[in-house]
Simulated scan of single mutants.
Amino acid sequence: MENVPPQSRALAEEIVKISSVGLAGPYNVMLRSPVFAERMKRLLDYLRFDTSLPKRLNEFAILIQGRLWTSQVEWYAHYPLALKAGLPQSVADDLKANIRPRGMQPDEEIVYDISMALANQHTVSDELFKRGVAILGEQQLVDLVAVSGTYVTVAMLLELGGESSPADKPLPFPEKPR
């Protein structure tokens, strides 16, 4: 906290109250751009606490981006939150093993399929879009894309800052060299 610029101290104190990694993780890098940090924190607050997506699906979307980016901190922070929110451990563990999760519910499948289509093909087919709207509705579909894109940004910030999971914990993805 003593290294935080004075104009960012109040925000840093807010972050410490809600973050499982304190001022580490993406916040360390974000605070170097105070206006961005303030706005990104507000967006993250919405996406983590007030989104229209059920918490189980929201956390699943975050884990998908964490896996795609091999993001140690995202996985470390959000894996227990996803399980607590009701995501089956087998689904999360298959994702971690980098395979299409087996036994997903229809809403989990649409979150996975849309997230993967956007990440890999940078498009969503008309059929996938219609399925997404039928299962999630328009607002949840928009919030899914928002959380996914935001956590790509978070993964990039974590990479930029060289952030990893706590030193006393095993890396979620030991295959990622640093």
Rank of each mutant, 00 (worst) to 15 (best):
P101Q: 01
P101K: 00
P101Y: 00
P101M: 03
R102D: 15
R102Y: 12
R102E: 10
G103I: 03
G103D: 08
G103R: 14
M104D: 01
M104S: 10
M104N: 05
M104T: 12
M104H: 02
M104W: 03
M104Y: 09
Q105L: 15
Q105I: 11
Q105D: 14
Q105K: 09
P106S: 11
D107Y: 10
E108A: 02
E108L: 07
E108N: 02
E108W: 00
E109M: 07
E109K: 05
E109V: 11
E109A: 10
I110G: 01
I110C: 10
V111Y: 03
V111A: 02
V111H: 00
Y112T: 07
Y112E: 00
Y112M: 10
Y112R: 14
S115E: 01
S115R: 08
S115H: 08
S115Y: 04
M116R: 12
M116Q: 11
M116F: 07
M116D: 01
M116T: 05
M116K: 13
A117M: 03
A117F: 01
L118F: 08
L118T: 03
L118I: 09
L118G: 07
L118K: 07
L118S: 08
L118M: 14
L118D: 00
A119G: 03
A119P: 02
N120W: 06
N120S: 15
N120E: 08
N120T: 15
N120M: 12
N120D: 15
Q121C: 09
Q121G: 00
Q121S: 07
H122V: 10
H122T: 14
H122K: 11
H122S: 10
H122A: 14
T123I: 05
T123G: 14
T123A: 14
V124E: 12
V124M: 09
V124L: 06
V124F: 04
V124P: 13
S125Q: 15
S125Y: 02
S125F: 12
D126V: 04
E127N: 05
E127P: 12
E127L: 06
E127T: 04
E127G: 04
E127S: 05
E127W: 00
L128R: 15
F129L: 11
F129H: 15
F129Q: 04
K130A: 11
K130P: 05
K130G: 05
K130Q: 08
K130T: 08
K130C: 00
K130W: 02
